[in-house]
């Protein structure tokens, strides 16, 4: 069985996010990148299947500039067998349909039984790429899996619905499934894994510049707030005094 895991490299939640000169995206040179958190859970789920079942190949796939090789290596160090890099040299694609078409072109030949993706990327948050790819490739698709059970020629997943509701859905192979965070505990790479990853293959497929985006990010900006907020920015002791005053005289909790 072959499983692809789509892992995106995104700015970490504590990264600085200065805008670029054109104000169309952040200035990449001052960003610290991490693996998109839900993708990390998706990868772990694939690795757990690989441990349980014979003959499972796990392939990590990422699209982006050279920097994304870092998350591919991280996936290989955790135990994935090989990597595919859809390499972008010019602009980073943000249009989901264009992204999905590029992935589908590269993944078509591979005939994956399963594609796992994260339910949403932390940077653009489109929440659709895994489903788009699955549909373009004629696979069955599902979103928001928080548990998976492999069966013969099919996979059963527990889907998260709103407000504490859930649902089991059974999908025939091949299937593309987006993974919700929290369904497992992602491992850290071992030292042996990190050493071994250096020898694993990463196939690079150069992507052509696309000039026909179906949707485009024209500019980004800092949101304005409308609420009256009291900002308390002082040393810890003064903050504690003010908090106690607020609790006592303004919110009146005691």
């Amino acid at each position: 069985m072959k499983i692809a895991v789509l892992i995106k490299q995104v700015p970490g939640s504590e990264s600085a996010l200065p805008l670029n000169d054109k104000q169309t995206w952040v200035d990449e040179s001052s960003v610290t990148y991490v693996m998109n958190p839900p993708d990390n859970f998706a990868l772990e789920e694939a690795l757990l299947i690989q441990e349980k079942v014979d003959d499972v190949e796990v392939v990590v796939v990422s699209m982006g500039p050279a920097r994304v090789q870092k998350v591919i290596r991280e996936g290989l160090a955790k135990g994935a067998d090989r990597g595919i890099h859809l390499e972008e040299n010019e602009e980073v694609e943000t249009d989901p349909l264009s992204i999905a078409k590029k992935f589908s072109d590269v993944l078509k030949e591979e005939n994956f039984d399963l594609i796992f993706s994260g339910l949403q990327s932390d940077d653009t948050g489109m929440g659709q790429t895994g489903v788009l790819i699955g549909e373009i490739l004629g696979m069955s698709t599902a979103t928001l899996a928080i548990e998976t059970k492999l069966e013969k020629d099919q996979i059963k997943i527990k889907r998260e619905l709103e407000s504490g509701w859930f649902q089991w859905v059974t999908l025939p192979f091949p299937a593309s499934i987006s993974i919700q965070s929290g369904l497992n505990t992602p491992r850290y790479p071992s030292l042996k894994g990190i050493m071994g990853a250096k020898k694993k293959e990463i196939k690079s497929v150069l992507q052509e510049l696309n000039t026909d985006q179906s949707q485009n990010i024209d500019n980004i900006f800092v949101p304005q707030t409308s609420k009256q907020t009291e900002i308390i920015e002082t040393d810890a002791d003064a903050a504690v005094d003010r908090i106690i005053e607020i609790l006592k005289s303004e919110i009146k909790v005691f």
């Binding site: 952040v26 932390d122 948050g125 489109m126 929440g127 179906s214 949707q215 485009n216 980004i220 900006f221």
Partner: peptide, 30 residues
């Protein structure tokens, strides 16, 4: 194209939160 999770409309396009809601983006489609 599916432009998801829009927070407001602007005359130039659709506004969506990006980068963990720290920034907003204006998205348009032709």
């Amino acid at each position: 194209p599916f432009i998801p999770d829009i927070v407001s409309l602007s005359d130039k396009g659709f506004v969506k939160q990006v980068l963990n809601a720290k920034l907003n983006a204006t998205i348009s489609s032709n």
